[in-house]
Design a protein around this nucleic acid. Structure first.
Length: 906
RNA sequence: GCCCGGAUGGUGGAAUGGUAGACACGCAGGACUUAAAAUCCUGUGGCCAUUACGGCUGUGCGGGUUCAAGUCCCGCUCCGGGUACCA
């Protein structure tokens, strides 16, 4: 600690100015106050400037732990971008807010009995203070908080719109339910059936659903919130299946739109792929199989209708609606036992199911439509109820899962494709049905006289097309597209979330509140603990809960609340006009600012938040509420920041501050034990958390910002290393000492070498900011500063420009230098310096001369020198003689201003 | 299993197919200092030489294309992320 004592010197020490140290404490405090007092970063009101930039961070959940060093990474990136755009003359919208509903605050409320809003607000205050100390150029007048009734009023308002919207499949567009045509056969059945029909079309619906239930959190989870080991992503505990009435959103109706929209976005390809995979579009056909002895068809979905001739059995999911009808008398017991066992199993451990396939025969047969052959129908839980039709035709020769199942139960495996494979042994195994083949090949055994179909000799693509059209023409099936994406479970049994503006009446009717009744606020409670059986704590609040309409009809409010995703689904829109109490936002402002030009956050939101948010946005777009089809034009994911952690040989974790390094080895300061260094996520248990507050007090916010950007490319995972902070801190100190010293800055003609480097640097830094390559931008500025040190002095103009290009990265020190260089006010709106290619031109180029591709020496030559002239000079050089000795060059490659390569044979 | 990333000095990382290792850390040496810290300067991939402005080698592994490959192609290994009976 003593080491840094000198930082505490007052800024007005009696040292003369050219010996002034870089006192970041004073400088940062001074300029943060200046910005706040002058509202420097206020969003421009003038919407006539055609250049606008909406730079957005994924707003944080304000946890009790405060900011960690991962937060400022993305925030600094968007901040540099925003500051740069301001200097380029853009109107910039750069806001920050709080995604403040969430379980931890509620958990705390349960333990302490205090209202969650109290701890939430306290946490927001901490986050705000910490963020302000980083010098981020947010317009704090735009701050929002999802738990503010003035905010969630509009979340409820959007929910009402989701409820009142249906999806017109023909137009591929959401429309108000008032425009929904009721089919005559439905309207004939009366009002109740009409309402049921409308409800079946709404984007939001209330229904009994088999849902994942986390007994620890006492909350249901969306499919996406359950990890593949069957645990809840929030708490890590095992979830169970439960049947509960819940609110659901019909996001799959927008699957095609969500999929197509991806192509128009400037997002990382990896994230786009993840969204595509999540939506999971697959094309194929639905095929109807007659069931022997039953007047019903068994419809299956398949992506390979071409393999119908290889279908040797059928499988239905245990929960399939026809299971009971299909099962014959003598098989009833064994099938029922199986269904029971598999339902129990799924509750215990789904993942174990993946290891060994199980199933039982129903006793009944279906008829294969292409050849009229009888195929047995089995029940097996490797077929899922929720996907396709919940039934499949099994083609073991050409599907690995079916192959496994058929092998286990001795079902026939008929190869119908001569595989495109060169290995003759493998080919023979496949043809004999001893190995599964899922790639392309020419059909065999694929014709039938009774039905007249014949695809023998065709390949996969032609076969799929042919069979699908044949099925359609015979009315036996149709082409079909399926999506993995499921309805979104949209309610949680919790207190600390947006209340649904919904009343359930005693007669079964559901009504939504009128807009003038919004916001529906949360009641004060004494107990925040939810019921063990799945009811929300809100059901304890009788006064709030029970309502009566003007006719005396009794009703209960919805006691579930919305999931945390709700608030973040549209917050970027509220930032545009956060104070509006008449509308969620003004549409003129929305048209101006949308879409978001740059959106930065963690890749952990690649699927959930970004998909949900895009879904809501598309609905709002269809309803004419927003002007763009997509919300986030350009997305970027910052990589996680890891940290070194230390453990003893036994594996015990040792706090970072108890470790000392000697000769590249690590020792425990107290025990002297040798320690292992590992790189891992920052976590309390590893005792390797780096607190940004500590970094700020030790090196300053500018150093923290600069280091986070200098560590490496923004999108990669990288380990925190305090020595790296020292490095950029040194750079800022050097810059400060150099430019604040009047002896180094003069008025007059600039040295040509500096001028050239300055203009190169301006170009490089500007380009790197646009492409978010901040690490190389910083190194370019370091090179320029090193050159300035070498030359000893620069012109005032150069000093100004250096300060300007540094300012988006390290704003405090830049403001201070700007005023020390004699300027008034803030540097924020100074125009970004122009670069002049003329100054960057080189007269000479140092040609690397290589022989057979190996660089041997260099010759400095004029850039304008012609190729044959260059060859002459190079061939005349005595070093060339040495390298080619007595050989004759067979070729001489000259790439102007790049390289000379002399090719010869030994 | 499938889909995406990645692998470069002691470390973080640079390199439109054209001088591999920019910049920074660390380390070594020097200057300043009574001394240390801070600061400034110099050197620094490895190996062999040290008489040289010297040679050899080098971007996970094995092939290939090219005058020229860290970069492009084919085949692997390892690491990270996502996803998983999705028919």
């Amino acid at each position: 600690m003593l080491k840094f004592f000198y930082f505490c010197k007052p800024i007005n020490s009696n040292k003369i100015r050219n010996q002034m140290d870089y006192n970041f404490h004073e400088i940062e405090k001074k300029w943060q106050k200046y910005w706040e007092d002058n509202k420097t970063f206020k969003t421009p009101e003038d919407l006539t400037n055609p250049k606008k930039c909406y730079a957005l961070d994924m707003f944080p959940y304000p946890s009790g732990a405060g900011l960690h060093v991962g937060h400022p990474e993305g925030y600094t990136a968007t901040d540099i971008f925003s500051r740069y755009k301001r200097m380029k003359g853009f109107n910039v919208l750069h806001p920050m807010g709080w995604d403040a509903f969430g379980l931890p605050a509620e958990q705390y409320a349960i333990q302490t009995g205090t209202h969650p809003s109290i701890i939430t607000n306290k946490n927001c205050d901490t986050f705000r203070r910490q963020i302000k100390e980083l010098g981020l150029s947010y317009d704090w007048d735009k701050e929002i908080n999802t738990t503010d009734p003035g905010y969630f009023k509009w979340t409820q308002w959007i929910f009402i719109r989701l409820y009142n919207t249906w999806f017109d499949d023909k137009l591929q567009k959401g429309r108000p339910v008032s425009e929904l045509q009721i089919p005559e056969n439905v309207s004939a059945l009366g009002k109740k059936e009409v309402n049921n029909y409308i409800d079946s079309k709404r984007l939001a619906y209330y229904d009994n659903a088999q849902v994942w239930w986390c007994p620890t959190c006492r909350i249901v989870c969306a499919n996406e919130e359950v990890l593949n080991d069957g645990t809840h992503e929030k708490c890590g505990n095992r979830v169970e299946k439960k049947n509960l009435k819940q609110w659901m959103l019909r996001i799959p109706l927008y699957a095609e739109r969500l999929l197509k929209g991806i192509d128009t976005l400037d997002w990382p390809e990896g994230i786009k792929d993840m969204q595509r995979n999540w939506i999971g579009r697959s094309t194929g056909a639905e095929v109807d199989f007659k069931i022997e002895g039953l007047d019903k068809d068994l419809t299956v979905f398949t992506t390979r209708p071409d393999t119908l001739f290889g279908a040797t059995y059928m499988v239905i999911a245990p929960e399939h609606p026809l299971t009971e009808a299909i099962t014959t008398g003598e098989n009833r017991k064994i099938v029922n036992d199986y269904i029971k066992a598999s339902s129990l199993k799924s509750e215990l451990d789904r993942t174990d199911l993946a290891k060994e396939k199980t199933g039982v025969f129903t006793g009944r047969y279906a008829i294969n439509p292409v050849n009229k052959k009888k195929v047995p129908i089995w029940v097996a839980d490797y077929v899922l109820t929720g996907y396709g039709t919940g039934a499949i035709m099994a083609v073991p020769a050409h599907d690995t899962r079916d192959f496994e199942f058929a092998q286990k139960f001795g079902l026939p495996i008929v190869c119908i494709q001569d595989p495109d494979v060169t290995d003759q042994e493998q080919k023979s195994r496949i043809l004999k049905g001893e190995e599964c083949w899922t790639e392309d090949g020419k059909y065999i055994n694929s014709s039938d006289k009774s039905t007249g179909i014949d695809i023998n000799g065709m390949n996969k693509e032609a076969g799929i097309d042919f069979v699908t059209r044949w099925l359609e023409s015979k009315n036996l099936g149709k082409s079909k597209v399926n999506y993995k994406l499921r309805d979104w479970l949209f309610s949680r049994q919790r207190y600390w979330g947006e209340p649904f503006p919904v009343i359930h009446w005693e007669d079964g009717e559901i009504t939504l509140l009128n807009e003038n009744e919004l916001p529906l606020e949360l009641p004060e409670l004494e107990k925040y603990l939810p019921g063990a059986s799945g009811e929300s704590p809100l059901s304890n609040s009788t006064e709030w809960l029970n309502v009566t309409d003007k006719n005396g009809r009794k009703g209960r409010r919805e006691t579930n609340t919305m999931p945390q995703w709700a608030g973040s689904c549209w917050y970027y829109l509220r930032f545009i006009d956060p104070g509006n109490d008449k509308l969620p936002f003004d549409s003129t402002k929305e048209k101006y600012w949308m879409p978001v030009d740059l959106y930065i956050g963690g890749a952990e939101h690649a699927v959930l938040h970004l998909l949900y948010s895009r879904f809501w946005h598309k609905v709002l777009f269809d309803l004419g509420i927003v002007s763009t089809d997509e919300p986030y034009q350009r997305l970027f994911n910052q990589g996680m920041i890891l940290a070194f952690a230390y453990e003893t040989e036994a594996g015990a974790k040792v706090s970072v501050d108890l470790v000392e390094e000697r000769d590249g080895k690590f020792y425990h300061k107290e025990t002297g034990a040798v320690l292992r260094q590992i790189v891992a996520k920052m976590s309390k248990s590893l005792r390797n958390v780096v607190n940004p507050d500590d970094v700020v007090s030790k090196y300053g916010a500018d150093s923290l910002r600069l280091y986070e950007m200098f560590m490496g490319p923004l999108d990669v995972v990288k380990p925190w290393d305090e020595n790296g902070v020292k490095g950029v801190y040194g750079f800022l100190g050097r810059a400060f000492r150099f430019f604040s010293n009047p002896e180094n800055v003069f008025e007059g003609e600039e040295d040509p070498e500096i001028l050239k480097m300055l203009h190169k640097t301006i170009k490089k830094v500007g380009g790197d900011i646009e492409s978010l390559n901040f690490n190389t931008a910083i190194s370019a500025m370091m090179i320029l500063l090193n050159l300035a040190y070498k030359k000893g002095k620069v012109t005032l103009k150069t000093a100004d420009k250096f300060t300007q290009i540094l300012s988006p990265f390290a704003p405090h020190i830049s403001e201070e230098l700007w005023s020390l260089l004699g300027h008034k006010g803030t540097i924020t709106y100074e125009p970004w310096p122009e670069f002049n290619e003329d100054f960057m031109k080189e007269d000479v180029f140092e040609y690397p001369i290589s022989f057979n591709g190996k660089m041997r020496f260099k010759i400095e030559l004029p850039v304008s020198m012609a190729k044959d002239e260059i060859i002459k000079v190079v061939m005349a050089d005595e070093r060339t003689m040495k390298w080619i000795a007595s050989c004759t060059p067979s070729n001489i490659i000259v790439v102007p201003n790049r390289i000379v390569n002399i090719v010869f044979k030994n």
